[in-house]
Design a protein around this nucleic acid. Structure first.
Length: 290
DNA sequence: ACCCAGGGTCCTA
DNA sequence: TAGGACCATGGG
Protein backbone atom coordinates (compact mmCIF):
# COMPACT_ATOMS: atom_id res chain seq x y z
CA UNK A 1 0.00 0.00 0.00
CA UNK A 2 2.69 2.45 -1.05
CA UNK A 3 0.54 5.26 -2.39
CA UNK A 4 -2.19 4.46 0.12
CA UNK A 5 -5.81 3.79 -0.33
CA UNK A 6 -8.02 2.70 2.48
CA UNK A 7 -10.26 3.46 5.38
CA UNK A 8 -9.78 4.53 8.95
CA UNK A 9 -12.19 4.40 11.82
CA UNK A 10 -12.76 7.96 12.95
CA UNK A 11 -15.07 8.35 15.92
CA UNK A 12 -16.04 11.83 17.10
CA UNK A 13 -14.94 13.31 13.84
CA UNK A 14 -16.52 15.66 11.32
CA UNK A 15 -14.38 16.18 8.24
CA UNK A 16 -16.29 19.18 6.92
CA UNK A 17 -16.32 21.06 10.20
CA UNK A 18 -12.64 20.33 10.79
CA UNK A 19 -11.46 21.47 7.36
CA UNK A 20 -13.58 24.65 7.40
CA UNK A 21 -12.84 25.72 10.96
CA UNK A 22 -10.23 28.33 10.05
CA UNK A 23 -7.26 26.30 11.30
CA UNK A 24 -6.22 25.09 7.83
CA UNK A 25 -6.34 26.45 4.31
CA UNK A 26 -6.22 24.92 0.87
CA UNK A 27 -8.60 21.94 0.97
CA UNK A 28 -10.95 21.98 -2.00
CA UNK A 29 -14.19 20.06 -2.26
CA UNK A 30 -15.20 18.42 -5.53
CA UNK A 31 -18.33 16.30 -5.35
CA UNK A 32 -18.04 14.64 -1.95
CA UNK A 33 -14.23 14.41 -1.92
CA UNK A 34 -11.83 16.89 -0.35
CA UNK A 35 -8.61 17.38 -2.31
CA UNK A 36 -5.44 18.53 -0.64
CA UNK A 37 -2.01 17.57 0.58
CA UNK A 38 -0.71 15.31 3.35
CA UNK A 39 2.97 14.54 3.94
CA UNK A 40 3.86 16.31 0.71
CA UNK A 41 1.63 14.13 -1.41
CA UNK A 42 -1.64 14.80 -3.23
CA UNK A 43 -4.52 13.25 -1.35
CA UNK A 44 -8.24 13.00 -1.49
CA UNK A 45 -10.49 12.21 1.43
CA UNK A 46 -14.13 11.74 2.24
CA UNK A 47 -16.18 10.71 5.20
CA UNK A 48 -19.05 8.29 5.44
CA UNK A 49 -20.53 7.75 8.85
CA UNK A 50 -17.69 6.96 11.24
CA UNK A 51 -15.03 6.08 8.73
CA UNK A 52 -12.56 8.14 6.79
CA UNK A 53 -11.82 7.03 3.24
CA UNK A 54 -8.51 8.19 1.79
CA UNK A 55 -6.31 7.92 -1.28
CA UNK A 56 -2.74 9.13 -1.84
CA UNK A 57 -1.01 8.78 1.52
CA UNK A 58 -0.31 6.01 3.97
CA UNK A 59 -2.63 5.00 6.74
CA UNK A 60 -0.24 6.31 9.37
CA UNK A 61 0.22 9.65 7.61
CA UNK A 62 -3.52 10.24 7.37
CA UNK A 63 -4.16 9.18 10.96
CA UNK A 64 -1.38 11.46 12.14
CA UNK A 65 -2.59 14.47 10.14
CA UNK A 66 -6.08 14.20 11.60
CA UNK A 67 -4.73 13.34 15.06
CA UNK A 68 -7.00 10.32 15.27
CA UNK A 69 -5.07 9.09 18.30
CA UNK A 70 -6.47 11.98 20.33
CA UNK A 71 -9.36 11.25 22.69
CA UNK A 72 -11.48 14.22 21.66
CA UNK A 73 -14.57 12.97 23.47
CA UNK A 74 -12.72 13.23 26.77
CA UNK A 75 -11.45 16.71 25.93
CA UNK A 76 -14.98 17.85 25.08
CA UNK A 77 -16.30 16.48 28.35
CA UNK A 78 -13.66 18.38 30.30
CA UNK A 79 -14.14 21.75 28.63
CA UNK A 80 -17.95 21.49 28.73
CA UNK A 81 -18.11 20.91 32.45
CA UNK A 82 -19.78 23.82 34.25
CA UNK A 83 -19.60 25.90 31.10
CA UNK A 84 -22.90 26.51 29.29
CA UNK A 85 -21.23 28.33 26.40
CA UNK A 86 -18.78 25.58 25.60
CA UNK A 87 -21.46 22.96 26.18
CA UNK A 88 -23.52 24.51 23.40
CA UNK A 89 -20.51 24.97 21.11
CA UNK A 90 -19.27 21.42 21.60
CA UNK A 91 -22.74 20.07 20.97
CA UNK A 92 -23.29 22.12 17.83
CA UNK A 93 -19.85 21.42 16.34
CA UNK A 94 -19.28 17.89 17.54
CA UNK A 95 -16.47 16.28 15.57
CA UNK A 96 -14.18 19.29 15.31
CA UNK A 97 -10.59 18.13 15.61
CA UNK A 98 -7.36 20.04 15.84
CA UNK A 99 -5.09 18.85 13.05
CA UNK A 100 -1.38 18.09 13.08
CA UNK A 101 -0.40 20.22 10.11
CA UNK A 102 2.96 20.49 8.45
CA UNK A 103 4.73 23.27 10.41
CA UNK A 104 6.19 24.94 7.32
CA UNK A 105 2.84 25.20 5.56
CA UNK A 106 1.11 26.24 8.77
CA UNK A 107 3.69 28.95 9.41
CA UNK A 108 3.44 30.56 5.99
CA UNK A 109 -0.34 30.30 6.18
CA UNK A 110 -0.65 32.24 9.41
CA UNK A 111 2.00 34.78 8.51
CA UNK A 112 -0.23 35.48 5.51
CA UNK A 113 -3.24 35.78 7.83
CA UNK A 114 -2.02 38.99 9.44
CA UNK A 115 -4.52 41.82 9.00
CA UNK A 116 -6.58 39.85 6.50
CA UNK A 117 -9.68 37.67 6.33
CA UNK A 118 -10.20 34.02 5.51
CA UNK A 119 -11.27 34.27 1.85
CA UNK A 120 -8.32 36.51 1.12
CA UNK A 121 -5.91 34.24 2.98
CA UNK A 122 -7.14 31.33 0.88
CA UNK A 123 -6.57 33.38 -2.25
CA UNK A 124 -3.02 34.35 -1.34
CA UNK A 125 -2.02 30.79 -0.47
CA UNK A 126 -3.65 29.49 -3.64
CA UNK A 127 -1.59 31.99 -5.63
CA UNK A 128 1.60 30.77 -3.92
CA UNK A 129 0.73 27.15 -4.67
CA UNK A 130 -0.08 27.63 -8.33
CA UNK A 131 2.88 29.89 -9.00
CA UNK A 132 5.63 28.17 -6.99
CA UNK A 133 4.39 24.69 -6.11
CA UNK A 134 4.52 21.47 -8.09
CA UNK A 135 1.35 20.14 -9.62
CA UNK A 136 0.56 16.53 -8.77
CA UNK A 137 -2.43 14.35 -9.49
CA UNK A 138 -4.69 12.15 -7.41
CA UNK A 139 -7.42 10.13 -9.12
CA UNK A 140 -7.01 12.31 -12.19
CA UNK A 141 -7.51 15.58 -10.30
CA UNK A 142 -4.70 18.16 -10.14
CA UNK A 143 -3.47 19.27 -6.71
CA UNK A 144 -1.09 22.19 -6.38
CA UNK A 145 1.38 21.26 -3.66
CA UNK A 146 2.70 23.86 -1.25
CA UNK A 147 5.99 25.41 -2.42
CA UNK A 148 9.26 24.49 -0.75
CA UNK A 149 11.13 27.00 1.44
CA UNK A 150 13.78 27.32 -1.26
CA UNK A 151 11.35 28.22 -4.01
CA UNK A 152 9.87 30.99 -1.88
CA UNK A 153 13.32 32.16 -0.81
CA UNK A 154 14.30 32.50 -4.47
CA UNK A 155 11.14 34.37 -5.47
CA UNK A 156 11.50 38.11 -6.24
CA UNK A 157 9.66 40.29 -3.73
CA UNK A 158 7.67 41.93 -6.50
CA UNK A 159 6.32 38.55 -7.58
CA UNK A 160 5.37 37.59 -4.04
CA UNK A 161 3.62 40.90 -3.66
CA UNK A 162 1.74 40.22 -6.87
CA UNK A 163 0.37 37.07 -5.23
CA UNK A 164 -1.53 39.39 -2.93
CA UNK A 165 0.85 39.20 0.01
CA UNK A 166 1.22 42.96 0.33
CA UNK A 167 3.65 43.97 3.08
CA UNK A 168 4.00 40.28 4.07
CA UNK A 169 6.15 39.57 1.00
CA UNK A 170 9.42 40.10 2.88
CA UNK A 171 8.28 37.93 5.79
CA UNK A 172 7.49 34.99 3.52
CA UNK A 173 10.74 35.31 1.61
CA UNK A 174 12.67 35.60 4.87
CA UNK A 175 11.01 32.46 6.26
CA UNK A 176 12.08 30.57 3.16
CA UNK A 177 15.65 31.80 3.58
CA UNK A 178 15.82 31.01 7.28
CA UNK A 179 14.27 27.58 7.08
CA UNK A 180 17.52 26.19 8.42
CA UNK A 181 16.66 27.63 11.82
CA UNK A 182 13.33 26.00 11.44
CA UNK A 183 14.15 22.52 12.68
CA UNK A 184 10.72 20.97 12.90
CA UNK A 185 11.72 17.98 14.99
CA UNK A 186 13.45 20.30 17.45
CA UNK A 187 10.40 22.58 17.68
CA UNK A 188 8.16 19.62 18.49
CA UNK A 189 10.61 18.54 21.18
CA UNK A 190 10.61 21.94 22.85
CA UNK A 191 7.88 22.79 25.32
CA UNK A 192 5.21 25.34 24.48
CA UNK A 193 7.00 28.41 25.82
CA UNK A 194 10.29 27.49 24.16
CA UNK A 195 8.71 26.70 20.80
CA UNK A 196 6.72 29.94 20.84
CA UNK A 197 9.80 31.95 21.64
CA UNK A 198 11.79 30.26 18.87
CA UNK A 199 9.05 31.00 16.37
CA UNK A 200 8.85 34.65 17.37
CA UNK A 201 12.50 35.17 16.46
CA UNK A 202 11.39 35.32 12.84
CA UNK A 203 10.09 38.62 11.48
CA UNK A 204 6.39 38.44 10.79
CA UNK A 205 5.63 36.06 13.63
CA UNK A 206 4.19 37.71 16.73
CA UNK A 207 2.34 36.20 19.67
CA UNK A 208 -0.91 35.35 17.94
CA UNK A 209 0.65 33.78 14.86
CA UNK A 210 3.12 31.84 17.01
CA UNK A 211 0.22 30.50 19.08
CA UNK A 212 -1.58 29.35 15.93
CA UNK A 213 1.52 27.52 14.71
CA UNK A 214 2.04 25.91 18.13
CA UNK A 215 -1.57 24.78 18.35
CA UNK A 216 -2.22 23.66 14.78
CA UNK A 217 1.09 22.04 13.89
CA UNK A 218 3.25 21.42 16.96
CA UNK A 219 0.98 19.57 19.40
CA UNK A 220 1.03 22.46 21.87
CA UNK A 221 -2.62 22.28 22.88
CA UNK A 222 -2.23 24.68 25.77
CA UNK A 223 -1.74 27.50 23.24
CA UNK A 224 -4.66 29.95 23.09
CA UNK A 225 -4.46 32.25 20.05
CA UNK A 226 -6.46 35.46 20.50
CA UNK A 227 -7.76 37.12 17.36
CA UNK A 228 -10.52 39.74 17.21
CA UNK A 229 -13.27 37.11 17.49
CA UNK A 230 -11.79 35.40 20.53
CA UNK A 231 -11.08 38.77 22.14
CA UNK A 232 -14.75 39.73 21.73
CA UNK A 233 -16.02 36.39 23.05
CA UNK A 234 -13.79 36.56 26.10
CA UNK A 235 -14.70 40.16 26.82
CA UNK A 236 -18.41 39.50 26.44
CA UNK A 237 -18.94 36.03 27.88
CA UNK A 238 -16.14 35.54 30.38
CA UNK A 239 -15.63 39.08 31.62
CA UNK A 240 -16.81 38.33 35.17
CA UNK A 241 -14.43 35.42 35.60
CA UNK A 242 -11.55 37.30 34.05
CA UNK A 243 -12.19 40.34 36.26
CA UNK A 244 -12.03 38.08 39.29
CA UNK A 245 -8.52 37.15 38.27
CA UNK A 246 -7.40 40.53 36.88
CA UNK A 247 -9.31 43.30 38.61
CA UNK A 248 -9.19 46.80 37.11
CA UNK A 249 -6.45 46.31 34.59
CA UNK A 250 -7.20 46.78 30.95
CA UNK A 251 -6.99 43.27 29.59
CA UNK A 252 -3.88 42.45 27.62
CA UNK A 253 -3.17 39.46 25.41
CA UNK A 254 -1.22 37.85 28.25
CA UNK A 255 -4.02 38.42 30.78
CA UNK A 256 -6.64 36.68 28.67
CA UNK A 257 -4.21 33.93 27.84
CA UNK A 258 -3.24 33.17 31.41
CA UNK A 259 -6.92 33.14 32.31
CA UNK A 260 -7.55 30.59 29.57
CA UNK A 261 -4.65 28.43 30.67
CA UNK A 262 -5.77 28.57 34.31
CA UNK A 263 -9.31 27.61 33.33
CA UNK A 264 -8.70 24.99 30.65
CA UNK A 265 -5.06 23.92 30.99
CA UNK A 266 -3.90 21.61 28.20
CA UNK A 267 -7.38 21.83 26.69
CA UNK A 268 -7.19 25.60 26.16
CA UNK A 269 -6.49 25.16 22.45
CA UNK A 270 -9.57 23.02 21.96
CA UNK A 271 -11.69 25.49 23.91
CA UNK A 272 -10.39 28.22 21.64
CA UNK A 273 -11.19 26.26 18.49
CA UNK A 274 -14.79 25.67 19.57
CA UNK A 275 -15.26 29.26 20.74
CA UNK A 276 -13.91 30.55 17.46
CA UNK A 277 -16.31 28.72 15.14
CA UNK A 278 -19.18 29.23 17.55
CA UNK A 279 -18.58 32.98 17.70
CA UNK A 280 -18.30 33.32 13.93
CA UNK A 281 -21.35 31.19 13.23
CA UNK A 282 -23.55 33.24 15.55
CA UNK A 283 -21.77 36.56 14.97
CA UNK A 284 -21.19 36.74 18.70
CA UNK A 285 -20.19 40.11 20.06
CA UNK A 286 -20.44 41.94 16.75
CA UNK A 287 -23.53 43.83 17.81
CA UNK A 288 -22.40 44.98 21.22
CA UNK A 289 -19.13 45.72 22.85
CA UNK A 290 -18.48 45.95 26.52
C1' DA B 1 -16.83 56.67 1.51
C1' DC B 2 -16.26 53.81 5.67
C1' DC B 3 -15.39 49.61 8.24
C1' DC B 4 -13.53 45.19 8.92
C1' DA B 5 -10.47 41.26 8.52
C1' DG B 6 -7.62 34.47 12.64
C1' DG B 7 -1.60 41.13 13.38
C1' DG B 8 3.23 42.68 13.41
C1' DT B 9 6.75 46.13 13.62
C1' DC B 10 8.56 50.15 15.07
C1' DC B 11 8.66 54.35 17.61
C1' DT B 12 7.65 56.93 21.76
C1' DA B 13 7.02 57.88 26.75
C1' DT C 1 5.72 47.43 29.54
C1' DA C 2 1.85 50.16 27.15
C1' DG C 3 -0.08 52.89 23.61
C1' DG C 4 -0.18 54.54 19.02
C1' DA C 5 0.91 55.08 13.82
C1' DC C 6 1.44 52.55 9.94
C1' DC C 7 1.27 48.86 6.93
C1' DA C 8 -1.95 47.12 1.95
C1' DT C 9 -6.33 45.28 0.15
C1' DG C 10 -10.74 43.22 -1.23
C1' DG C 11 -15.45 42.79 0.25
C1' DG C 12 -19.57 44.30 2.67
Amino acid sequence: MADGKGRLKAPVFDLHITLTSGQVFGWKKVDDWYYGEIAGKPVRIRQDNNSLQFEGASRNEVADYFALDEDVAAICRRISRNDPILSKAVNEFRGLRILRQDPWICTVSFVCSAFSNIPRIEKKLQNLRTRYGKTAYIAGHPVHLFPSPRSLADAPLSQLRACGLGFRDKYVKGLGQRMRRFDVAALRRENYEEAKESLMESAGIGEKVADCICLFSLDKHEAFPIDVWIARVMANLYSKEIRAMFPKTKLSYKDVQSFARAKWGKDAGYAQAFLYIYARKHKLGKERKE
